[in-house]
Design a binder for these strands. Structure first.
Lengths: 187, 187
DNA sequence: GCTCTTATAAACCGATCGGTCTAGTGTGGC
DNA sequence: GCCACACTAGACCGATCGGTTTATAAGAGC
């Protein structure tokens, strides 16, 4: 047969969405095959290590995306411009709160223990990159660290509450509040 | 045999901890029996509806606890005192960030669809109760709503990041930041 | 001391789990 | 044309899943 040909990058994207919807434990192989239309043969061809390898590659993929689109700009580009873009990127990536943070979700249950390093590194770098940009924009070290932590905490919390309440507005309102708070220190 | 006698309230507490650690899908019946030392016989005696009934009763139990210890005081008692106690209650209940919010965790994956009503009601009441207390303490409606939303968002986000980073300090720092922000509007 | 109720233990069930394996199909290099 | 290889379909495996059933032990009421 071999009807539709997938590349590994397609597989990563498709499987990622299933993990996002169902969680690590909730995403069974039959769920994954059903929702992605990828057969078990294809999945184990791309990911010989099974679910664990899928999840690891998906997280690495997400991390790489954030590094390119958000962390490196924060670390290297004009800080004010990079911070301004961060709000847009965040809103787009999480689809105004309708899409959750897979890495944050993995952190909550014992799935965390499997991927503790990757989870920690992702959030650590986000906070560090934002704090660094703030410092380069002449915010004091203490204030920069507090603001960066507050921003990432707020984003994660807003993602939880957006889904919990089924409220499309809360993510945007939180992002706006955080942005104002940050910009108040920049002027 | 019938060695140790459990009451249903004991069972709820024990099983709740397993759901908290493993998530709804990750908590299998054999996991639950192993970690709680309750046999399947006991579990199905207390919860004929199986996992779903367990989770529903656990959430009702958590909700009732919050209503008594936090929401009703916010709604009925002296607002400043109730808000001050809310920070303490929150820090104690979540053990300074070492314990996650089960209801928030359920909100992230498709487990939410099973319990959407209970999840929504819990967070809605928390935000409403806090906003109400702020208004009774003479904060304007708009500010009260924004502050209440920000507080609950911040708490949930801090719980995620505390586990993600394995950082014992972030929950306390976030709580302190929120408390100062709220108190700045009360004076 | 008998019975009725509550609580427990564990064997057992069909379904589904994660994962393996075989038998392909289609494509590019030569 | 044909071979090597990337990819796919799905039957199949033992283990574990959520859930049921049977048997029985310990009080409580009388």
């Amino acid at each position: 047969m071999t009807r539709t040909i997938f590349e590994k990058s397609d597989a990563i994207t498709l499987v990622a969405e299933v993990f996002r919807e169902l969680g690590y434990e909730g995403a069974s192989m039959s769920n994954i095959t059903a929702r992605t239309r990828l057969s078990k043969g294809s999945l184990y061809h791309f990911f010989p290590g099974g679910k664990e390898e899928m999840a690891a590659e998906i997280m690495a993929n997400i991390d790489a995306w954030f590094v390119n689109e958000m962390f490196k700009p924060l670390e290297e580009d004009d800080p004010r411009a990079a911070i301004a873009r961060m709000w847009e990127t965040t809103d787009t990536y999480f689809r105004s709160g309708r899409r959750i943070c897979l890495i944050g979700a993995f952190a909550l249950d014992e799935t965390r223990d499997r991927f503790a390093g990757a989870i920690q590194a992702y959030f650590y770098r986000w906070i560090e990159a934002l704090a660094g940009a703030l410092m380069r924009a002449c915010v004091t070290t203490a204030e920069a660290n507090a603001l960066a932590e507050e921003a990432v905490v707020g984003i994660q919390g807003a993602l939880t509450l957006a889904r919990a309440l089924g409220d499309d507005g809360i993510f945007g309102r939180t992002l706006q509040r955080l942005r104002e708070r940050v910009e108040a220190r920049l002027t």
